[in-house]
Structures are given as C-alpha cells and as structure tokens.
Amino acid sequence: MFLNLLFIASAILTILGAVLVLTTKNIMHSCVFLLTSLIGIAGLYATLGADFVAVTQVMVYVGGVVILMLFAVMLTGGKDFVSKAQNLLGLAPTMGNAFTYVMASFVGVVFILTNIQLIKRLGEFSKLKNNGSFVSTVNELGMLLVKDHILAFEISSVLLLGALVGAAIIARPRKQ
C-alpha cells in the first residue's frame, strides 16, 4: 500500500519532470526539471527495492551530471539560449531538422522492439517479487561486480580513466 503510493508519486514526478523538460523554453529551467525527473527515477528504484542503485542515481545525476549540464549551458550562453523555433502546435521548440526526426524514429522503433521482448517476460518477473521486506542489495551487488561482471566493470573503469586522461590533456596549458 505504502510502497504503491510512493511508486505512483515517483512515477508522476518522473513523467511530469520529463514533460516539463520538453515544454519549457528556457534551457536552464529544462535542466532543473530534468533533475526532478531523475529524482523521480531514483524513487522508482527505491520502491522496487534497489536501494543502492537509487542512491547511485542521486549521486551520479544530481551531484554530477545536472551540475555539469548547468555549467555547460551557462558557459555557452545560459538563458539567452532560448529557442524561437516552434512546431506546428506552437507548444514546444522543434528541436532539430528532418534528419533528427528520422534518426529518432529509427531509435524509437528499436526501443519499442526491445521493450516488447521485455514485456513478453513480464509474467516471469512478477513471480520474483518479494514479500515487501527490503533486503540489502549492497553485498550482493559488490560480489556480482567483482565475480560475474568483472569484465564489464574493468572495461568501464578503463573507459572512464581514458576520459579523465583525455580531459586533462585537453585542459592542460599549451607550451608556446
């Protein structure tokens, strides 16, 4: 009951944030609404019993990504960057040209096809649902990361290290 209420609240927060991101014209406000949406997703994870993933979501997105986005937006124009282009309904900016829409619809088709595969197996997942009591996922997650998924873990850490070194090389002062 309580979890259902929280789930619905989080879902509404996520969808509302996403809709506001699309409809608002000020890009700084968009970033803040994106924050709402991301916190809503963290809430969804929490209600599904994935406590560690939920907190990681807040850590990575609220503490890192959104602040970086705001920084990037501010340093490249900030609130002056208001899109004047409108779509047919006059509600939202058009956001791109024909090519964007072709690519987006392609991605959309792929997304829907993969989601259908997931939805097919929905019956199996619902059997796994626990009796509402939370179990700590931290230990299990840690063991899985260093046992079964060690390759993915290492590859992503090398990728992040590469990004870090690359950023340092780009940002370092040039020798004249």
Binding site: M28, V32, L35, D51, F52, V55, T56, V58, M59, V62, G63, G64, V66, I67, L70, F71, M74, G78, F134, S136, V138
Partner: peptide
C-alpha cells in the same frame, strides 16, 4: 543500509542550490 552513501549523495543538492542561487 546504504545510509552513508545516501548522506553523501543527497547533500549534493546543496551544491546545486548554491550554484543556481548564484546564477
């Protein structure tokens, strides 16, 4: 059971507030 992590994560909202206040 992720209390320490939660505390570190949620307190980053303060940084966001400071930044947005300045902007």
């Amino acid at each position: 059971n992720v209390g320490v992590f939660y505390l570190i994560a949620i307190s980053s909202l303060v940084g966001l507030g400071v930044f947005l206040g300045g902007y």
